[in-house]
Simulated assay, not measured.
Amino acid sequence: MPDRQRADARRNYARILAVAEEEVATHGAGASLEQIARVAGMGSATVRRHFPTRRTLLEAVSHQRVESLCARANEFAGEGDSRVALLSWLDDVLAYCVTARGLTAALSYDGAEPGSVHESTCSAMMEKAGDPLLRRAVREGVVAEGVTVADLIALIVGIVLATEHHPDPAARAERLFRLAVAGLSPQPRT
């Protein structure tokens, strides 16, 4: 939001965002924009002026969480084992996505405008943060070449969406993620 906006526009933005955070936490990515407007005490046109699409609203709601995940990537960059560092960060991403309703929608590329460099600001931030972890793991030969952070985020988004209605979505998502990381081949017995 530009600093040049009038004080009342900045207050409206902050009020809408606070209400949207609560509504998304309760109802997920499908939270009603009209309900957000009602609870915020303003018209839906005002909400849409600040957040022209559902994606822009979800990205704004998720921005602080994504910044935390990016900071965690920086913390893991100093770990000795590059595979452990990458997987630890991805575990955090998975855990956040399972618990932070609406974050998977903010990270997905679905519905993005064709031709944009990064269809999702949140995804772009995550890709930039995770890239050093992934590049190091690839360089050290513990992750296959050609894997991208976008691939890994898409995998997590898919797992979270597939498990969101499971009785224990966190445990199910963790199991599926571990299966994806290990692959389908049996592990050698020692």
Rank of each mutant, 00 (worst) to 15 (best):
A31G: 03
V61Q: 03
E34G: 08
Y109E: 11
S185L: 14
A29Q: 12
L33Q: 13
E67K: 15
S68C: 12
V19M: 09
A173Y: 01
A18V: 08
A85L: 03
V98L: 04
L176E: 05
A9H: 07
L17Q: 07
A20M: 07
V147N: 02
H166K: 05
E34P: 01
A85W: 01
R15S: 02
E59Y: 03
L155S: 13
P167S: 04
G158I: 15
H166D: 15
R136N: 14
A106G: 06
S123Q: 12
A173D: 03
L152A: 02
I153H: 09
S44Y: 06
S88H: 02
E67C: 11
S108T: 13
Q64E: 15
A180M: 04
R175L: 07
Y13M: 00
V84I: 10
V149F: 00
L33R: 14
S108W: 01
R38E: 12
A18L: 06
V61H: 02
R49I: 06
R10Q: 13
V160F: 06
T99W: 01
E113V: 14
S44F: 02
E34C: 03
R49K: 10
S62V: 05
A112C: 14
V61M: 10
R4S: 15
A25R: 09
E79Y: 10
F51E: 04
V117C: 03
H165N: 11
H63A: 11
L184Y: 04
L86S: 00
A182N: 10
A154G: 13
G80K: 10
H118G: 05
V98N: 03
T121F: 01
G130D: 08
R4G: 07
G111L: 11
R11D: 08
V143N: 01
A171M: 09
V160G: 06
R38H: 11
R65G: 04
P132F: 14
Y96S: 14
T46P: 00
Q64W: 01
D92C: 06
E67T: 15
D168H: 07
G115K: 10
L133C: 07
G78P: 02
H165P: 02
D131Y: 12
A20E: 06
L155A: 15
P188I: 12
P114D: 13
I153G: 01
D91R: 10
G115S: 03
L87W: 00
A18Q: 13
E119S: 14
R83E: 00
